[in-house]
Computed example of a mutant assay.
Amino acid sequence: MPSSAPAAAPADLRIEPVDAVLDDVERSLQTRLDRDTLVRKRRSLGARTDRGTWVRIERRRMEKIGSQGWNGTECAAVLEGVAQPRWHRAVVWRQPDGAAMWRADETDLLPGAPIGTSVLATDPGLPDAWWQALNASLDALAAHRTSRVATPDTVTITQGGVTEAARRFLPDGMDTTVSQWRPAHADLNWANMTGPKFCLFDWEDWGMAPRGLDAASLWGNSLAVPALAERVRQERRRDLESRDGKLMTLFVCAKVLAPDAHPEDPRLEPARRTTARIAEELQTG
């Protein structure tokens, strides 16, 4: 089992030394990682292997690992009808100081490059076939059932959390109960999908969530490009126009309009307009 790892805090794998971790993963999975393809994010790493696959390595603090575990990519392998990389194997180990867990998942290579960063500033000009594949995968995902609960931003989604977010925009005492819970990817953004061929990856946080979470998340990550946000709204309008979808839109807008939001974030004004409209619709509908 791998044993070496950098300290858990501060947790930023973009700047920490990671050679020992990569060496350990290579020994455990019996492969070589192409260091020239290494992608470094705050809490994850990724690289191509010498057998033509991809390995994603994540570090997660112990308090962020709930009773359901954190094997989302492995569990997502059973989902039928969803375009995703095929999962092969994994290795999991505990950091020597006990502060965090590490996990490396090996999957097929993506069929294309990620579309962009999580929030887009320009329209990627995706073909109609891409949108059709997105809809087919999200509809297939919603038809499944799982004991997992979604953890957007590594935080378990609950009725209480939905209510807290929605009541920032709704009158006190208004009913914010979610009526439909369905499987969701729970991290649907433009950095987790490929183009021009559609594929959805990074399944660490998927699980049951209120209807419309994925649609609202993708819409929220598109707000800086009005035409793109409108395309998302049109494609997923059945989810977004449902009562639960409207609650999920408020849930996403609460994050966009957080107190620490950058004052020049182009998503702020469309998010404010949308919350005002949806709050009125929920009160009068």
Results as ranks from 00 to 15, higher is better:
residue 3 S to P: 01
residue 11 A to L: 15
residue 15 I to R: 15
residue 18 V to E: 06
residue 23 D to L: 13
residue 26 E to S: 10
residue 27 R to G: 01
residue 28 S to C: 13
residue 29 L to S: 11
residue 30 Q to D: 14
residue 34 D to N: 15
residue 38 L to P: 00
residue 39 V to T: 06
residue 39 V to R: 13
residue 41 K to P: 00
residue 45 L to N: 05
residue 46 G to Q: 09
residue 47 A to M: 03
residue 55 V to C: 05
residue 57 I to Q: 04
residue 66 G to K: 12
residue 72 G to N: 08
residue 74 E to C: 08
residue 78 V to E: 14
residue 81 G to P: 02
residue 83 A to K: 14
residue 90 A to S: 12
residue 91 V to I: 11
residue 95 Q to R: 15
residue 96 P to T: 13
residue 101 M to G: 08
residue 103 R to I: 07
residue 105 D to E: 14
residue 110 L to C: 01
residue 111 P to R: 13
residue 114 P to L: 10
residue 134 L to K: 03
residue 155 V to E: 12
residue 161 G to P: 04
residue 166 A to P: 00
residue 167 R to E: 07
residue 168 R to H: 10
residue 170 L to R: 09
residue 178 V to G: 11
residue 185 H to R: 11
residue 187 D to C: 08
residue 187 D to G: 10
residue 190 W to V: 01
residue 197 K to N: 03
residue 206 W to F: 15
residue 209 A to V: 02
residue 209 A to H: 08
residue 215 A to D: 00
residue 215 A to N: 04
residue 228 L to N: 09
residue 230 E to F: 02
residue 233 R to F: 06
residue 240 L to A: 11
residue 245 G to Y: 07
residue 259 P to E: 09
residue 260 D to T: 10
residue 263 P to I: 08
residue 270 P to S: 15
residue 271 A to W: 02
residue 273 R to S: 14
residue 283 Q to C: 13
residue 285 G to N: 10
